[in-house]
């Protein structure tokens, strides 16, 4: 028997709970593609199923990206900085550029990978606003969710986005030039104590424990699924043409054959193979039948249990079912745990 790598780790617990109870800040640079040009809006509206044209300047929107089969190949946040200028935040920029290259046709657009010149810090949790107000030139009290604004930390120009990957109602992201990130780090470190905030350093906290508790996805959860299977169909604009629409309409008519559910395991010291560590994940067995596979598995410090997601057959599973995963008893749940 082995120790649970999460539950018994005080460092992980402290970092997780800082975000839930006060604030946590961390280096969280994603890949960033800047796209501009008079056809930028039209191209993005064709590439992404969620509406882009309706996005206001300074607004942001989450959307999936689909292939012609209606399957998710990326999920991104798009910031509209100006009328014809956007940032696309992704973790698969090489694939994104190749995809845009393949679909831009005669569009008058330019795009460049600005990842190397734009760092990002996440500041998340109930006290994150107070922490930011203490270091920013302009307070962010009235900044709405999924908006991005110019601001300053001392003399350093930054962009502040209200968003995050922790599920916290209050959470921000600071975009800053890499050569000035030291100033941002110093200011956050200098002020964290006053708000009980903590620097988060553990990848598993940034990416797994916080996000999973709140129903947030990784590509290991939603890659090669269709939006109906994973609950991402709600924001789709069916009044426009987009790549994958035809295939998706068929799914809409027939119903999704799979669904992404959560699961809990009461036993502490389990090992469940999941896609977030590579491969295809352990089988999920319900009533003696193989119904799907585990996409990710972690520990919910707030939930107090091992938690995860599984992509399973819709017709054979429902919330509340008991499942067996690698010999452990699990209960299928909704994806949002807290």
């Amino acid at each position: 028997m082995f120790k649970n790598v999460y539950k018994n780790d005080p460092m992980k617990r402290e970092q997780h709970e800082a975000v839930r109870k006060t604030a946590g800040w961390y280096y969280f640079t994603h890949q960033l593609l800047e796209i501009s040009g008079k056809d930028a809006t039209a191209l993005l509206d064709r590439v992404y199923p969620n509406p882009i044209a309706t996005l206001k300047n300074g607004g942001a929107r989450y959307t999936t990206m689909l292939n012609e089969d209606g399957l998710i190949i990326d999920d991104v946040v798009i910031f509209r900085l100006e009328e014809n200028k956007y940032w696309i935040s992704t973790l698969f920029v090489r694939k994104l550029i190749a995809w845009l290259d393949a679909h831009k046709g005669e569009s008058k657009v330019e795009y460049k990978n600005i990842t190397d010149v734009t760092d990002m810090y996440a500041v998340q949790g109930p006290k994150s606003r107070d922490l930011l107000n203490a270091i920013l030139a302009e307070k962010v009290d009235d900044q709405k969710f999924f908006t991005i604004r110019e601001n300053k930390i001392g003399d350093v120009p930054v962009k502040i986005s209200r968003a995050g990957f922790t599920g916290e109602k209050i959470g921000y992201e600071i975009y800053v030039a890499p050569e000035q990130k030291g100033i941002v780090e110093a200011k956050l470190a200098e002020n964290e104590k006053a708000f009980g905030a903590l620097r988060i350093t553990e990848f598993q906290i940034m990416v797994l424990t916080l996000a999973t508790e709140k129903g947030f996805y990784l590509m290991c959860d939603i890659g090669k699924t269709n939006p109906f299977e994973v609950g991402l169909d709600r924001g789709i604009n069916w009044d426009k043409d987009f790549i994958g629409k035809e295939a998706l309409l068929k799914v809409k008519a027939e119903g999704a054959k799979r669904q992404l559910l959560g699961f809990t395991v009461d036993e502490d010291d389990v090992f469940i193979a999941s896609k977030d560590k590579g491969g295809v994940g352990d089988l999920v067995i319900v009533k003696g039948e193989e119904v799907g596979r585990v996409t990710k598995c972690t520990y919910g410090f707030t939930v107090g249990k091992n938690i995860g997601y599984a992509l399973v057959e819709s017709a054979k599973t429902q919330v509340g079912d008991t499942a067996v995963i690698n010999g452990y008893t699990a209960v299928l749940t909704d994806r949002v745990f807290v």
Binding site: V5, K12, G279
Partner: peptide, 10 residues
């Protein structure tokens, strides 16, 4: 084989 743990410290 398989990855059993993947974190910043272990």
């Amino acid at each position: 084989g398989r990855v059993n743990d993947f974190g910043t410290y272990r």
